[in-house]
């Protein structure tokens, strides 16, 4: 039995996130229905599915950003590493620092580009040199350093929408998360910027566990190492990209991936 176990471990990296029998509801409306899945570390996992399938709710449950939404309830377990998201992280801010999130619409704070990068670090005692290092590292990691290194004190609002989204990624990286949760990060940017962000996501997946919600099946085909197809709050099928895009087992998955249509 041991050689088999070794083989499995070689093919599938250890899970960074494990979701077990998880359900979520807004009031009486169940949006996620008893799903189980795992996300391997240092890879890109795309959550695919039609509108209302529960992709964003699942993503927002991973860092408990929905905690303050009136009527939002969950059941089941989500583990990040060894820690249970709901029981292990009594301090939800620590969980959110560990699982950084970037939203659909880029939202830069008033202030300079450098101030935006360091926004999540305010309150920490950092020297000027440390701040400069973190700013440069984060902007380099977000592939924005070349564009803005000469104008770090310029207002962040002067950047293009695509650059603003990369600045949001840099801001999330500055707090040194292990996981990046991306909620349709290219939905509001132009195709050229979208491609740049896709390349960036692939690069970042060497160091971070990335979970990305997307409506764009072709984008998932370009970016994902693993895909999870959700429909009506249930996981229909999940697996490595090659499996999902060339030999998905279920007709429903094949129909959605080919025609971006789902009748569930």
């Amino acid at each position: 039995m041991k050689p088999e176990l070794k083989l499995v471990s070689a093919q599938t990296p250890p899970a960074a996130i494990t979701v077990t029998d998880f359900s979520a509801a807004y009031g009486d409306v169940n949006v996620i229905k008893n799903i189980s899945l795992s996300v391997p570390e240092k890879s890109v996992t795309c959550l695919l599915g039609p509108s209302g399938s529960g992709k964003s709710t699942l993503l927002r449950s991973l860092n408990r950003i929905n905690d303050d939404v009136a009527g939002f309830t969950t059941k089941g377990d989500i583990h990040i590493g060894e820690s249970c998201v709901h029981k292990g992280f009594t301090d939800v801010t620590r969980l959110r620092a560990k699982a950084g999130m970037v939203f659909q619409t880029p939202c830069v704070f008033p202030g300079s580009i450098a101030a935006n990068v360091l926004f999540g670090l305010k309150g920490r005692k950092l020297s000027k040199i440390e701040k400069a290092q973190i700013t440069e590292q984060s902007l380099r990691a977000a592939a924005l350093w070349k564009d803005v290194s000469h104008r770090l004190s310029a207002p962040a609002s002067t950047l293009s929408v695509g650059q603003q989204q990369r600045l949001c990624i840099a801001r999330a990286l500055a707090v040194t998360p292990d996981i990046l949760l991306l909620d349709e990060p290219t939905a509001s940017v132009d195709p050229v910027s979208a491609r740049e962000i896709e390349t960036l996501i692939k690069t970042l997946s060497k160091d971070y566990t990335i979970i990305m919600v997307t409506h764009d099946v072709r984008q998932a085909g370009r970016v994902a190492d693993r895909a999870i197809f959700l429909c009506d709050g249930e996981v229909i099928e999940q697996g490595p990209r090659d499996h999902m895009f060339s030999k998905a087992a279920l007709p429903k998955t094949r129909t959605y991936l080919l025609e971006e249509f789902c009748d569930c």
Partner: peptide, 21 residues
């Protein structure tokens, strides 16, 4: 703007930090 507070929380800021910053 709708996402401004959510972006703060997503960075790991506490409620007090979101209010004051």
């Amino acid at each position: 703007p709708s996402g401004v507070r959510e972006n703060g929380y997503a960075l790991g800021l506490t409620r007090r930090a979101v209010i004051t910053r």
